[in-house]
């Protein structure tokens, strides 16, 4: 499958232990920056009832959903603990602070 890397901005655009979202035609994607400056991207759509994961509290390599406190792994997209469910993870690249994500469609291009 073709991977299309799309620049989305700078690492510094995201607060430490925070997240921003990227709007795409395939839905919103949440991009996270952990305390250790690792970057992850997952669908911004909680497997439970669709809560916006980008609005949750980031801790370790996980985020707690703001609606009902499911904890989602940023690495695997899977719900941790007793809950079951998963969201799609999206490849991210960090090249000297410039962030890109890979989407599976050649037709995409960044605007903004």
């Amino acid at each position: 499958m073709d991977m299309n890397w799309i620049e989305i901005g700078d690492l510094s655009d995201i607060p430490l232990r925070g997240a921003r979202c990227v709007k795409t035609p395939q839905g919103k994607i949440a991009v996270f920056r952990t305390a250790e400056n690792d970057v992850f991207a997952i669908e911004d759509h909680c497997p439970h009832k669709g809560g916006p994961l980008s609005q949750g509290i980031v801790h370790g390599r996980a985020v707690t959903c703001p609606l009902h406190n499911w904890v989602i792994s940023l690495e695997t997209g899977k719900a941790l603990g007793a809950d079951e469910g998963a969201v799609r993870t999206i490849p991210v690249r960090n090249e000297g602070g410039k962030l890109s994500i890979a989407l599976e469609n050649l037709m995409l291009a960044a605007a903004e």
């Binding site: 995201i14 607060p15 921003r20 979202c21 709007k23 795409t24 035609p25 291009a109 605007a111």
Partner: peptide
């Protein structure tokens, strides 16, 4: 400000 804006918006090319 960052809280209220998407980081980027990706659209279909063209």
């Amino acid at each position: 400000k960052h809280e209220f804006k998407p980081m980027a918006t990706v659209e279909y090319a063209g």
